[in-house]
Write a protein that binds this DNA or RNA. Sequence first.
DNA 1: ACCTGAACACCGTTCAAGT
DNA 2: ACCTGAACACCGTTCAAGT
Lengths: 231, 231
Amino acid sequence: MADKTQARRTPLSRDRVLRAAVALADDVGIDSLSMRTLAQELGVVPMALYKHVSNKEELLGGMVDVIVGEIGSPEPAVDWKSAVRQRILAARRALLRHSWASRVIESRATPTPTVMAYMDSMIGMFLAGGLSVDLTHHVMHALGSRIFGFSQELFDAPRDLDPQRPALGEMTTRYPHIMQIASANHDRHSVVGSGCDDQFEFEFALDLLLDGFERLWRLGWSSTGHRADRL
Amino acid sequence: MADKTQARRTPLSRDRVLRAAVALADDVGIDSLSMRTLAQELGVVPMALYKHVSNKEELLGGMVDVIVGEIGSPEPAVDWKSAVRQRILAARRALLRHSWASRVIESRATPTPTVMAYMDSMIGMFLAGGLSVDLTHHVMHALGSRIFGFSQELFDAPRDLDPQRPALGEMTTRYPHIMQIASANHDRHSVVGSGCDDQFEFEFALDLLLDGFERLWRLGWSSTGHRADRL
DNA sequence: ACCTGAACACCGTTCAAGT
DNA sequence: ACCTGAACACCGTTCAAGT
């Protein structure tokens, strides 16, 4: 009751709407965030939100902007590679605080100015390091969602490898190779249900890409040769 | 009218439901595919679908299975690298025929048996090539959604670079680095609005990763050294 | 002029009534 | 026993009525 009065007294603002939306998504999950539940949380009628965000799409865009704001500025570094690496891992830390964020970022159609600015500064780090405009372009594409600190993880070795489970035998005949990886993983951790080390996998792929970029950079690689036939 | 009678006469089956769903999504987009519109397309009442798919989640899973079925079997190849490369590019061709498919694949929570079998065969290609179980595990994570022939493309150089547009000047001051890439791209194609060459970008990143995997393989790389401190 | 309750046009899914 | 229309519990958003 006191909260509701408080909420009524504090005037709504775009910033307050966005922060409440982020907090609510953190709490109940992005699927349960609706214009109606958000309005209720703020103690206002649903329509009151539409004065601060033009629709739900724009609300989600604003929520992404809040998270991108949490990434912070790049730390000064000697070389472009470690500068980019540190920045991307900082982005990852920000994203991990909001489990819904990666799904919202990937589902959004057009980037907001804040997201554009983040991408622009990332490009700037490569160019400042001496990579050509051409190479930087392809590098940005190759990183894809990794610039924001996440990647599309479709593969996950089964967490549940209890040998007692009757389905295990069937799994091994149906997916022999997946089970090979799952067993190896299981042996290493010596704990049932440990799954994969997401942070390790992320850094493995990131470093593989960064090393590849560096190699092309040192070779003075350019795409013109590759695509000359298509011009 | 004739269509409706036809639809009524042909009995519903899970297969017919899934194929109709894929065709409808191709036509009107995934956002316009609902249990209700699909039922209407098939000339049945919405509830009739629930005898063949238990809910919408399962319908989407079945639709993904149809597309994965279109990928086909891997062609025999001399080395694992070109075998994997060909298979992934085949997957990409299948996905490009259904623009909604990548979004559905990435949004699905748990993989269907068909998807598991596809992943299993992909793992098998690396193992058959002589990569260790350990390396193959990390390789699968690093590829992520690329095993299905797509990647999360968040960066796209502006397609619309008409110098007449008044907003262009503002863009250049706000996002100088993005505009550098856009201009370079623009000069090369000599056509306004050409955008990026998605296929080139996909193969660029894929080859960078495959080259990296090959290098680690030749070096006899293993993750145990890297994660020894965490055990 | 401002605010907002009711309404609109949808969803996926349940369930009971009808055959 | 099977099928299905109506209903339920939601959506995002419009709009007109009330202040």
